[in-house]
Structures are given as C-alpha cells and as structure tokens.
Amino acid sequence: MLPISKSAFPTFPPFPDDFATHPLVIVDYELIKAGDKDEIEQLWKAATELGFWYLKNHGVEQEANNMFDMGRETMDLPLEEKMKYEQGDGGSSFGYKARGQVATDAMGTRDNIEFINVAKDDALAWPKQAHRSYPRTVNARMESTVVPFVRKSMEVNATLLDVFNEKLGLPEGALAKRHSVEEFSGSEARCTKSPPTPTETRLGIGAHTDFGSLSFLHNRLGGLQVLPPNSETWQYIKPIPGYAICNLGDAMAIFSGGILRSNIHRVCPPPGAQKHWERWSLVYFTRPGNSVNLHALVEESPLIADYVAKHPEGIHETGATSLEWFTRRIKNQRISNRKGPETWMASRGTEIRV
C-alpha cells in the first residue's frame, strides 16, 4: 500500500486579481445527495445556463492528491519509455499522449501538453486488462490510487446524472442505463502536465466541447477558460482549493435535446505569475456506453420532446453511437491524421452549433 499523499506540489502563486474571470454557481454535493431542493435548483440553473459549476464537499480531495502524485511519477519517466504507451492515431484516447500530437485549431497548431489517460474499464478490471497496458508508474498505483479515484468519481457523476434524469422528466434509470458500469465506454481518468509558459501563447487544448456526458475536474493553476453564451470574450475559471469544477459534455446536450448546455472552453497559459509554474490538472470523464446511440430522448420525456419541437435547429440526431462520436473526434484531432482545415472540422462536436 502506497503512503497517502501529503501533496507533492508546492504552494503556487495566487490567481491574479486583474484577469477577467467568469463566476460559477457553487453546488454543495452533500446537499445534492441529501435531496435538498434549493441545491438541486442551483445545479439545474448551472447546467442549463452555462453547463459549468463548482462542486464542494465532494469527498474526493485525497484521492485526487494521490492521482497527482501518480501523474508526476509518470511524467518523470523517460520519453522513450512513455512513448511505448502512446495512444496512437486510431481514435483511442487511452494511454499516454506526448506534447505536440494534437491540433488546437484549424491551422494545425500543435498542443503543448502531455497527459496519461487510464480507462475506467482497465481500472475496474485490474489486474486483468480490458483495453491496453500502462506505464509501470500507473500499474504500481492502480489498486491504491487509480481505482479509488475512478470509483469515487463515478459515484459523484452518477449522483449528478440521477438529478438530471429526474429534472428532465426521464423514466427512472434512463441515464444510468446509458452509462452502465458493465459496458465498455470511453470513460477515463486523465492527469495532465503543462510546462511553464513565461513567453508561451500557444493553447494547451484548443476551443472545444467535451466529448461525453460529465467531467469532474481538479485544477492546480488557472488556464481553463470558457466562452460564455452570447459573448466573444474568453474568461478564466478561477481554481478554488478543495472545489472541483464540473461541466457537461456533448452527450448530455444531445440526450436533453439542448436543454442542458455543453459549453465551449479551452486551456491556455496560466495568468500572471502562475505562468512560471508547471500546470497540472486531473479530470474524470464520464461517457456513455460504447453502443449507446446519441439522440434526443424525445420518446422518453415530454419535456425534451416539447423543447426539441420549439428548437429544431439543435443537434437532436447524430446517427452515431457514443463510440463512433468519440472515435471521430479523437482521431481527427491527431496531427498525423491531418489533411487540412477539414480534418479539424471533422473533429468538432456540438460546438459547431454554439
């Protein structure tokens, strides 16, 4: 059993006061679990207006700290060793991604981050292998660090999805069955490292919406930005110690017929003095099962059916499964697959309608 992390990260400079930030609704997870009606309305407000919110009292702070330690140990490995586990160009996200392998815009500008993605299916199957193998630093912490983080993150996201299920007027368990633990999916944990960027303007991750249903994010420094609805000005989301940042992805926007918002966002260099430090982030992505068809659930909810009838311009029928949607987006971001701006456009999700 590995020792509990006491935080391998130093005290970072504070987020500067002279940078524009976008305020987020603060949601108390303990109150959500208790069924507090006012708190549920706060969550619903956030999910329908911006699709981003802070989540406090989520109970995953120690597991997140341990995952950051795993991430640092993994990124400290020689590049040659990490590249043995590179995710490749076939459309899979699991494994290691080196810097510069992904386009951040239509011009093909390369990203400047590296990360390790561990599939939910591999974590839950451990010590068996569901999809692929991982670096030794991941394997050494799979049971003590990765699996606890994945399980707790799954629990948090499943609780929030149950709230959305009820608010959308769906039959009990409609969203849960589309996110079955037993079915293989693109759900994964990701730990990301960005280098210090004292003179860098290049994006870490280009403007995008998330591929799946719900993202549960832990940030150490600024860098995450959102483009609020009806605005042309990007604004930072300020990290708050102990608070996670949650946001909805394409699948929930599509399932809900557009009632729930999958908002466009990006990762840029941290502001102020923070740009002189390595930037670390950790996220768990909940995505639907691979075989789940992505379409508005109009036949299961009068609320969704009515909204779709009044907003026919939305993306209500993709003609794709979750796996197909996810694979297309991942594959067409890879630099090795690039043919031109059309490749970038082929990697887009619901942001093309934002």
Rank of each mutant, 00 (worst) to 15 (best):
M1H: 11
S5A: 09
S5I: 07
A8S: 14
A8Y: 08
F19S: 15
H22I: 13
Y29R: 11
Y29C: 09
D38I: 12
A46F: 04
L50A: 08
W53V: 09
N57W: 03
Q62C: 08
K84G: 07
D89A: 13
Q101M: 15
V102C: 12
A103Y: 07
I113T: 14
N117Q: 12
V118M: 05
W126S: 09
Q129Y: 07
P135K: 01
A140E: 01
M142S: 01
F149L: 08
R151T: 06
N157C: 13
V163L: 08
F164P: 07
N165P: 01
G173D: 04
A176N: 11
H179Q: 05
E183F: 10
S194I: 13
P195K: 12
T199W: 09
T201Y: 12
G212L: 06
G222T: 02
P229W: 05
T233Y: 03
P239M: 01
P241E: 10
P241F: 04
P241Q: 08
D250V: 03
S262F: 05
P270S: 06
Q274Y: 00
Y284D: 05
P288N: 11
L297Y: 04
D306M: 04
Y307F: 15
A309V: 02
P312T: 02
P312W: 00
P312S: 04
E317Y: 09
T318E: 02
A320I: 00
L323F: 12
L323T: 02
R334I: 05
K339V: 14
M345P: 02
S347G: 11
R353F: 15
